Simulated scan of single mutants.
Amino acid sequence: MVPVSVFIMDVTDSSSADYGEELSNNLSQLERYIGDWYGKSGSVQVKHRSGDELIMLSEGYSSAFITAFYISSLWKYEKNPPYFGLSYGSLDKKVAEIDIEKWIHPFVKQARNANDHLKKQKDRESFHFQLNDVEPSLHTLINSMLMLQHVLRIEQTDVQRLVCSLYLIYGKQNAVAELLGRSAPTVYSHFKKGHCEQILRSFRNIVSFLDACQAKEFPEMGNNHTKTLEERIRTNIKSQVQDIFSF
């Protein structure tokens, strides 16, 4: 058995966007980015399909959420934010053996149902898990934490959102200040006022919970995969950070 996670991503109001072709091209580019983030390990399948939809299957309980969180942090179309239905569990075959476009599995249905849950919301949140084999109280706890995280994120100003995203990638106040050409105290002020610490801590806590669930089911595997994945994502983003964020 292999621990895996899935997300189905849609884009809010994509059909009404004046830059629909640009948005579609961006999603295709995002598909390539994700492939670069995971390298040639065969531990991910990702496909841009149906205009504004992205589906991803990856090895590791936390991988889909980590990837989704970074995508959300890099996203530049503020009027058309992405939203992600997520699920995870164990699979009886390797990720590399799956044809993601034709794959029919309960994990896909769970991720689809989670995505549909978000689609029906008036004030749409960014992430939602559906986990059929998980204790309902834990399911509720994860989604409640994500709901609170969303509230903090949508209240951020543009500069606070940028500081939060760059801090996710660089992890150091001075590095973010140097990139933005601002003083470290100014960056710290935006970091505090934008509740970046709470947002990033909630991300880390959810990743830790998912890793702990995996470690319980697959004790022989450890959690090095999570650390390696994040290091690869950050390294890739750093190599083109000016183009991605346009500051």
Rank of each mutant, 00 (worst) to 15 (best):
P219Y: 00
A114C: 01
E135H: 05
V2T: 10
R182S: 05
G85S: 09
H150Q: 13
M145H: 07
T235A: 15
Y70C: 12
E197R: 13
L146H: 08
G181Y: 11
P3V: 01
I98A: 15
V241C: 04
I34M: 11
K94W: 01
I104N: 03
V6S: 03
F107G: 05
E155P: 05
V2I: 13
S62Q: 04
M221C: 07
T228L: 15
D158F: 01
F69Q: 01
V176F: 15
C164H: 09
E197H: 12
D18L: 12
V6D: 04
F245C: 02
A177L: 07
G171W: 03
F247R: 13
C164V: 09
L23K: 09
E59G: 02
N25A: 14
S62H: 02
V11G: 08
D133E: 14
Y19L: 12
G60Y: 13
F129R: 03
F203N: 01
R232C: 14
V151P: 04
C164P: 06
E21M: 11
D52S: 02
I237R: 09
S137E: 11
T140S: 13
R201G: 08
A177C: 07
N115M: 04
R201D: 15
D243W: 04
T140K: 09
G51C: 06
V159G: 03
Q242H: 15
H190P: 04
S62P: 05
L152P: 01
N113G: 05
I169G: 01
Y170L: 14
D36H: 13
D13R: 05
G181C: 11
T140Q: 12
Y170W: 12
L179T: 07
H117T: 11
I104C: 05
E217S: 13
F107Q: 11
L141E: 13
I237F: 03
Y38H: 00
G194D: 09
Y88W: 09
I154G: 10
S43G: 06
I8Y: 08
H190N: 14
L148E: 08
A114L: 04
L200G: 10
G39T: 11
P3D: 00
L229S: 14
S183D: 08
I71S: 06
S202V: 03
N143I: 01
P219R: 01
L200I: 02
L74A: 12
T157S: 15
N223C: 08
V134P: 01
D18N: 09
A96F: 06
D36T: 08
F65S: 05
S62M: 03
I142Y: 15
M221L: 14
E53V: 04
V44C: 10
F191Q: 04
L23R: 06
V134L: 03
T67V: 06
Y70N: 13
V241L: 02
L86I: 07
L210S: 00
C196Y: 09
F247H: 15
N80F: 00
M1G: 15
V4T: 03
V176Y: 14
L30R: 11
S43N: 13
W37M: 02
A111L: 07
P3S: 00
L152A: 06
S43P: 05
V2N: 06
D13A: 01
F7P: 11
L91M: 02
F127E: 05
I34N: 06
E231Q: 15
I199W: 04
N115Q: 03
G89W: 09
S202M: 07
P136A: 10
F129L: 05
